[in-house]
Design a protein around this nucleic acid. Structure first.
Lengths: 197, 197
DNA sequence: ACCTGAACACCGTTCAAGT
DNA sequence: ACCTGAACACCGTTCAAGT
C-alpha cells in the first residue's frame, strides 16, 4: 500500500506529458521510448502497451497539440470584440503565440507523415483549424466587412499566411525579436486581402 | 586499376545524393549513416570523415535544398514576363512546385534546429530567398504596380503566404489534388495585398 | 588524406512469462 | 489488463590502426 506503483492506469498520460517536456527541452531527436520509461520508473517494454510504436506516440503528441491550439483559437475569439479586424488580429496572435511557445510541437504537428493511414486524424485536426478561419470569414461577409465570394477562396489564403508566419517564427527564419513587431504588417496585409471591392 | 574504389574523393557527394534519395523514398526516420555507408560500399565509420555527425549531414542536405530552391526561383524570374503579376505568379509556382516535388526535403529545410550554431547557414539561405521576394516587390514599387511603403512590410507577408501554402501542400493538409487549383486564389490574394491604394 | 575494424553505449520492437 | 526481463537486430560515435 505504500509507494504503490506510480501508474494506476495513467502511464499513457504520463508518457505523453514527459515526452512533450523532453521534446520542448531537447528536441525530437532526443526523444527515446526507453529513456521515457526509465524516467517514469517502468520497464522499457511498458510503453508498447499504450503506443504500438514510437511514431504512434509522436502522432498522439501532435494530435494533443492540435487540440490545444484549437482551444487557444476558440479562446481568442471570446476575448475579441465584434469587429472582423479585431477577431482576425486575435486569432493571429493566438496562433502565433502558441507557435512560438511550442515551437518543436508545432513542427511535429505539421511534419510530413510517412504512414498516410495514421495521419488522417492529424489532417482532420488541421482542417478543423481551417474551419474556424472559414467561419470567421463567413461572418465577416455577412456583416459586410469582408468581400463577397467563395469562403474558402478567402479563408484559405488568410490561414495560409498565418501558418506561414508561424512557421517562419518557429523555424528561426524570422528572428524571435521581430515576431511581435512584424505582426501588424501581416495583419494589415490580411485585412487588405479580405477587404470589400 | 580495375574497379578501383568508387570514391576517389567524392564520398561526401555520394553520401548526400544517396541520403536525399532515401529521404525522399522512406522519410527522415529511415535515414541511417550505417545503411548509407553499406549502400555505398564503405565502412560504417567512413562518413564521419565528411560529416562530423548525422545532424551535419542533414544540415548539408537542407543547405543544398535551399540552393536548388533559390536556383529554381531565379529561373522562374527569367521565364516570366515584365509585369509584376506575372513575376509573382511565376515565383509562387516555382516555390510550390519545388515544395511538392521535394516534400521531405522542404520539411527538413525549415525544421527547428537545436544546434543554433549550425543553423546559421540555413537561416542565411532562407533569408536569401526572402531577399528575392523583396527585390521583386521593390521593382513593382518602382513601376507603380505595387503600393508604396517599406519593402519588407509588403514582401514579408507575401513570402509568408507563399511558404504557408507550400507548407500545407507538403504536410498533406492541403490535398495534392487541390494544390494546383487553389493557387489562383492565393496569387489573387497576394496581388490584393500588394496593390496600390 | 582517407578509410577500416573493433568497441562502446545506446536504440526500438517482440514475446514469453509473471501478477 | 498491465507490466517485466531477456533477446534480437539494429543504431551513432569514437579511436587506434592501416594504406
Amino acid at each position: 500500500m505504500h509507494t504503490r506503483r506510480y501508474h494506476h492506469g495513467d502511464l499513457r498520460a504520463a508518457l505523453l506529458t514527459r515526452a512533450e517536456q523532453t521534446l520542448r527541452e531537447k528536441g525530437p531527436g532526443a526523444l527515446s521510448l526507453r529513456e521515457l520509461a526509465r524516467d517514469l520508473g517502468v520497464s522499457h517494454a511498458a510503453p508498447s502497451r499504450h503506443f504500438k510504436d514510437k511514431q504512434a506516440l509522436l502522432d498522439a503528441l501532435a494530435l494533443a497539440g492540435f487540440e490545444r491550439l484549437a482551444a487557444a483559437l476558440t479562446g481568442s475569439r471570446e476575448a475579441a470584440g465584434e469587429e472582423f479586424a479585431d477577431r482576425l488580429a486575435a486569432l493571429v496572435r493566438a496562433y502565433v503565440g502558441f507557435a512560438t511557445g511550442n515551437a518543436e510541437l508545432l513542427d511535429l504537428m505539421y511534419t510530413v507523415k510517412h504512414d498516410p493511414a495514421a495521419s488522417d486524424a492529424l489532417i482532420t485536426a488541421a482542417h478543423q483549424l481551417g474551419a474556424m478561419a472559414e467561419e470567421m470569414v463567413a461572418e465577416g461577409q455577412r456583416s459586410g466587412e469582408v468581400r463577397q465570394g467563395p469562403v474558402d477562396a478567402i479563408a484559405m489564403p488568410v490561414f495560409t499566411t498565418l501558418h506561414g508566419y508561424a512557421s517562419f517564427a518557429v523555424s528561426g527564419v524570422l528572428p524571435a525579436a521581430e515576431v511581435e513587431s512584424g505582426l501588424d504588417a501581416v495583419i494589415a496585409y490580411m485585412l487588405r486581402g479580405c477587404a470589400p471591392s
